[in-house]
Design a protein around this nucleic acid. Sequence first.
DNA 1: GATCTTGTGAACGACCTGTAAAAGCCGGGA
DNA 2: TCCCGGCTTTTACAGGTCGTTCACAAGATC
Lengths: 97, 97
Amino acid sequence: MGRLEIRPEEHAALVDGRPLSLTVRELQLLVTLSAHPQRIMTREELFAEVWGRQPRSDDRSVDVYVSRLRAKLGEALPGTPVIHTHNGIGYRFSPEG
Amino acid sequence: MGRLEIRPEEHAALVDGRPLSLTVRELQLLVTLSAHPQRIMTREELFAEVWGRQPRSDDRSVDVYVSRLRAKLGEALPGTPVIHTHNGIGYRFSPEG
DNA sequence: GATCTTGTGAACGACCTGTAAAAGCCGGGA
DNA sequence: TCCCGGCTTTTACAGGTCGTTCACAAGATC
């Protein structure tokens, strides 16, 4: 999708062909989000898909990883927000707005 | 319905495929109104469905949210009023007049 | 134009999110 | 075994957004 390329089977995410250095969790989260572009995913859905279990009631792991992903994506793609917050619901992956 | 698409299960409302950025309450209200097109819904009905309880006697929340919804819809669909006021009764959803 | 109804900006508390930092976990190497 | 380094998870707090109510403006009705 545009300059961002995600290859789950190769455990890699590329920007302009250059690989991002993501940890396993970061990549899992990015893969999961990008598998449903434009769709708002709740924290519960993300947690279930990435962590494979239910989150604790006050679990903030998803938020922390979204923050880390944004930091790395923002460095590689300045000015092109990729992960959008939907207050009270969750996050949405959208490479162009 | 026309250019406006409402997808409650995805927490989304789209105009020409572009998502409106609505808060949870705004979306709930839009979903409820649009679930009964052309039908005038009283404030009590709307309040019961969206808030899940009875309004205080002088509660204006519905009006405030209708106003906010109209603002956002009006920006995305200029010149196409969607929510109509029926004085002394309530509101009616109608995408084309 | 008097009165009742609706529209809407503003304010404030409650709740939600962003993010740095601490704490926990685990494997590899000395 | 013990230490070290990287990754994950949890915590803490700052900052932002939303929901609610109020106050007044604007509109409707008679």
